[in-house]
């Protein structure tokens, strides 16, 4: 049985365990051969900034886990276009080649899913 899972995060890469906890669910979905997409809203788009170096705050580098996503066939990564504008970022400069979605497209993406897990 294959279902479409969408995991939605709105938290920045550090400061809480949200980003790591979300990736753990994503990898597990993949182990069960489910279709999984990630949607990063708000400050969560900062998870995709390259060259993170959290050693000073004794955290593991998220980039290492992110780089394994392709091995798990998790390649549908979406970011909120409004968050990109808010942070002055563009999708091309972010890791994992995310697709930027305007509000209408975000709604459409969520409607298409079987399971939506916010975190």
């Amino acid at each position: 049985m294959n279902k479409r899972f969408l995991l939605i995060c709105s938290r920045p890469p550090y400061g809480s365990s949200a980003a790591r906890d979300l990736l753990d669910i994503a990898l597990t979905c993949s182990v069960f051969e489910q279709s999984v997409s990630l949607l990063l809203m708000g400050d969560a788009i900062l998870q995709l900034l390259p060259e993170q170096n959290p050693t000073a705050i004794r955290q593991k580098n998220l980039n290492a886990i992110q780089s394994s996503l392709a091995l798990y066939d998790i390649e549908s990564i979406y970011v909120d276009a409004e968050a990109l504008r808010f942070h002055g970022l563009s999708a091309e400069t972010l890791l994992l080649k995310p697709q930027a979605l305007e509000p209408d497209a975000l709604q459409q993406l969520i409607r298409e899913q079987d399971v939506v897990l916010p975190l």
Partner: peptide
């Protein structure tokens, strides 16, 4: 048990409702 129990449950359920997400 492991996170697999969450994914398996989602596969078999008609509705999955999260309480206390976005934290």
């Amino acid at each position: 048990s492991g996170l697999g129990q969450l994914v398996e449950a989602a596969m078999l359920s008609d509705r999955v409702i999260t309480f206390g997400g976005r934290g």
